[in-house]
């Protein structure tokens, strides 16, 4: 059976924009229910997958509480990013709930979750490359109707280099600077919780340290942070809470220190 809406492998850029049509995002009712208690943001017992595809997450739980940094680590293909996307509403949830600030938001679309105060920085394509740094930040604040110049000033304080380059196209910046733009864009909504999908992917160790410092700084302003990291050891060192995922399920959970000290975790995931 061929896909009636597929392109048959056509790669003709003179008729079809190679950027394609964007990701498929499941349709949702948009209903919320009060669900008091529990952590500030939690994806509870999530079983989920893409469309009608196989389940990728199996009864997986991820949470972050006020004033915390929570880190998701695990081997390649463990479903770390998928878990993050499930919390953000980009997957089809078969079972489980997502709760934010005492509200069940499982049936909200990703956009509606942004409006509820979730900030999300995807792993790739996380900036508007053809737009200037300042325009990127403006687009981050698109849903805000109030004056957001204060927030922009705060972002520039946090990432001084961005102020310098604010009229430059974001696509022309270095990898580390792009990640700063991406985080800055997400901060523009004044989110109540920030989700980062591998913010240090593809940057040099020095830049990585600096990015971690900035992330800690953001956390100190009172925004809880949930992030996926490839550099497990470094990430767990700054984490209040850590989740080790294996094949889409929770393998180990604990504070960052506990996990770093756990001989099993050390042996399997931290290289001894």
């Amino acid at each position: 059976m061929s896909d009636p809406y597929g392109d048959r492998g056509n790669k003709d850029v003179s008729i079809a924009n190679p950027k394609g049509m964007g990701s498929e995002i499941p349709q949702r009712s948009g209903q919320t229910r009060p669900a008091p208690g529990g952590p500030f943001l939690i994806g509870e017992n999530m079983t989920a997958g893409y469309g009608n595809g196989p389940d990728i997450l199996h009864d997986c739980t991820i949470a972050v509480d006020q004033g915390e940094i929570a880190v998701i680590v695990g081997p390649n293909g463990a479903g770390k990013s998928t878990g993050m996307k499930a919390v953000f509403g980009m997957l089809d949830m078969r079972q489980g709930h997502v709760k934010l600030d005492g509200e069940d938001i499982t049936d909200l679309s990703p956009q509606a979750r942004v409006a509820k105060g979730m900030g999300f920085v995807p792993q790739t394509s996380n900036i508007f490359t053809s737009m200037t740094v300042e325009e990127n930040l403006e687009m981050g604040a698109f849903i805000r109707t109030d004056d957001f110049s204060d927030t922009m000033a705060q972002v520039y304080d946090l990432f001084p280099i961005l102020k310098e380059k604010r009229l430059q196209a974001a696509g022309e910046l270095s990898g580390g600077q792009r990640q700063q733009v991406a985080v800055g864009r997400a901060l523009m909504t004044q989110p109540k919780v920030l989700m980062l999908d591998e913010p240090t992917a593809g940057v040099s160790p020095i830049v990585m340290d600096e990015l971690f410092d900035r992330i800690i700084e953001v956390a100190r302003t009172g925004i809880p942070i949930l992030m996926v990291e490839q550099n497990a050891r470094q990430a767990l060192e700054i984490a209040d809470k850590g989740y080790v995922l294996v094949q889409g399920a929770n393998a180990y959970t604990g504070t960052g220190k506990e996990l770093l000290a756990d001989p099993e975790v050390r042996k399997s995931f931290l290289g001894g």
Partner: peptide, 8 residues
């Protein structure tokens, strides 16, 4: 590098 068959 990419196809331009349609316009061609």
């Amino acid at each position: 590098r990419s196809d331009y068959l349609a316009i061609a």
